[in-house]
């Protein structure tokens, strides 16, 4: 493994800390926010730029240290991008369904289903 040039190390370090920081803030939000629907927004910090920044750091690091384009981490990014909407939509709908079934007041403009 070759030593990275200084600029690359700084870029990789920046993306790593940015991604981990956003993910941490998302998890703080998951713990701090009060209602379930608010909390539904918190993990998307980790799955959007949190994941993208970490993956970019990994792609840059492996591509430079191995001297060829290493793109396999982008598969994880693509995978997160496709699966998160499915899980969060289904979870949101499940919560809505449960709240309506128990007649918990949900702030909706009108009934959608």
């Amino acid at each position: 493994m070759t030593e990275l040039p200084l600029w690359a190390a700084i870029v990789v370090a920046f993306f790593l800390v940015l991604g981990a920081g956003l993910t941490l803030i998302g998890s703080i939000g998951l713990l701090r926010l009060r209602s379930f629907y608010d909390r539904l927004h918190a993990p998307t910090l980790g799955t959007s730029w949190g994941a993208l920044a970490t993956i970019l750091a990994s792609v840059i690091f492996f591509s430079l240290s191995e001297g060829r384009l290493v793109l396999h981490d982008l598969v994880i990014g693509f995978f997160i991008m496709c699966t998160t909407p499915v899980t969060l939509m289904l979870l949101g709908r499940a919560a809505l369904y449960r709240d309506r079934a128990e007649n918990t007041p949900v702030v909706t403009p009108s009934e959608t289903e």
Binding site: G26, H41, T44, G92
Partner: peptide, 8 residues
Amino acid sequence: ATPGTAWL
């Protein structure tokens, strides 16, 4: 994917 909006 956009934090701040959730599809219900």
